[in-house]
């Protein structure tokens, strides 16, 4: 991982909202850029995004494949491929992540922030029992006796409502269902009491009934343990049911952000509205679905100005210039020349 700049933020970006409770922010991302230089072209996966997550808050990051949402999540833990070039600043619980040393990063991962992934079957080692894997994680981050480690593992399994935790510790991953494994992974992530949990599509591989259980669990954890969650998904329904605030990503940029109720009720960016229109909704029968013409842009040569302009019905001549950030309401903004909501 190579750092282009260690400067905390790019000066031209406005500091998002007031900073009266600076210590409240568990995650602060400012002007983050991630690019992959190649021989002939440089792929710009993330192009300057700002995100902030408070204690006890769930921020949803939504976007299609290739919009840069997973790269953003990975950079919060310093888990970038070697070829990636990073710019901007990422702070977790006040600690700088980009530019941190290997040992600082090791403390951060699991300690300050933890991550859960899409497929719990791939996140666990099939050769070891769940207990063994949990003990390793806890023992690695905390100075505890064997008995304490075991007690801690049982505690965190109880916190995620695992039926019969001591039996679960003795099982191998293949003996559990996907929903149970996802609970194990969440318990493992929480065992070291992180302040931030990054969840990369944790419900995509699960059935709807289990997905609903996991949504309820994450909501409970955020409330009871004051946990900040960065939740990545492409499922707008999951987003609407779980998150407090959302950020909509397109082509490596956040195009709209705000409280979940406002963004879904009064989407201001044409992309947000289009994306919502493509989702089949229960109770609407076979009403025609909306669709977005064209393709996601090639990130080696992103369109000038607003990246969505070649696919946008509302595009005008000025859309080839960088889109301004328009305040729509309290904490709600959209980066668009022709917002859908008049302000």
């Amino acid at each position: 991982m190579i750092n282009e700049s260690l400067q905390p933020s790019t000066p031209e970006r406005p500091a998002a909202s007031n900073n009266d409770a600076a210590q409240e922010w568990v995650l602060e991302v400012e002007g983050l850029t991630v690019s992959f230089p190649g021989l002939f072209k440089t792929v710009k996966a993330v192009r300057g995004i700002d995100l902030k997550v408070r204690r006890g808050e769930i921020l949803g990051l939504v976007g299609e494949s290739g919009s840069g949402k997973s790269m953003t999540a990975m950079s919060c833990l310093g888990l970038m491929p070697d070829a990636a070039r990073l710019g901007g600043s990422v702070k977790v619980a006040g600690q700088q992540v980009n530019g941190a040393s290997a040992s600082q990063l090791a403390d951060l991962r699991g300690g300050g922030a933890a991550m859960i992934f899409q497929n719990p079957m791939k996140a666990l080692n099939p050769f070891f029992t769940v207990g063994r894997q949990m003990f390793d994680v806890i023992g690695c981050h905390r100075q505890l006796s064997k008995a304490q480690i075991r007690a801690e593992a049982l505690n965190s399994l109880e916190a995620v409502s695992m039926p019969d935790p001591s039996l679960a510790l003795a099982k191998y991953p293949h003996q559990m269902s996907g929903g149970q494994l996802q609970r194990v992974v969440i318990a493992m992530a929480l065992a070291c009491r992180p302040k931030l949990l990054i969840a990369d599509e944790p419900t995509t591989a699960l059935d709807v009934t289990v997905q609903a259980q996991i949504i309820a669990l994450l909501r409970k954890l955020a409330q009871e343990q004051d946990l900040a969650i960065l939740f990545i998904t492409h499922n707008l329904g999951v987003m609407a049911s779980l998150c407090d605030r959302v950020a909509v990503m397109y082509a490596g940029e956040v195009v709209e952000s705000g409280p979940v109720g406002q963004v879904f009720k009064r989407p201001a960016h044409p992309y947000t509205l289009k994306l919502m229109g493509t989702v089949p909704k229960l109770g609407q029968g076979s009403q025609p679905l909306g669709f977005i013409p064209g393709q996601v842009p090639n990130m080696a040569v992103p369109p000038a100005g607003c990246a969505f302009n070649p696919r946008c019905e509302r595009a005008t001549g000025r859309c080839v210039q960088a889109a301004p950030r328009v305040e729509i309401g309290e904490g709600h903004w959209a980066a668009c020349h022709n917002t859908l909501v008049k302000v």
Binding site: G179, V208, I215, A240, V260
Partner: peptide, 25 residues
């Protein structure tokens, strides 16, 4: 009914209608 109630709605105001079916198949 339980399956239908587990589908998360895109409308945040209806998030409380999301019902949890206990256990697994």
């Amino acid at each position: 009914r339980a399956l239908l109630n587990s589908v998360p709605s895109i409308d945040p105001e209806r998030r409380d209608q999301l019902q949890i079916l206990s256990g697994e198949i």
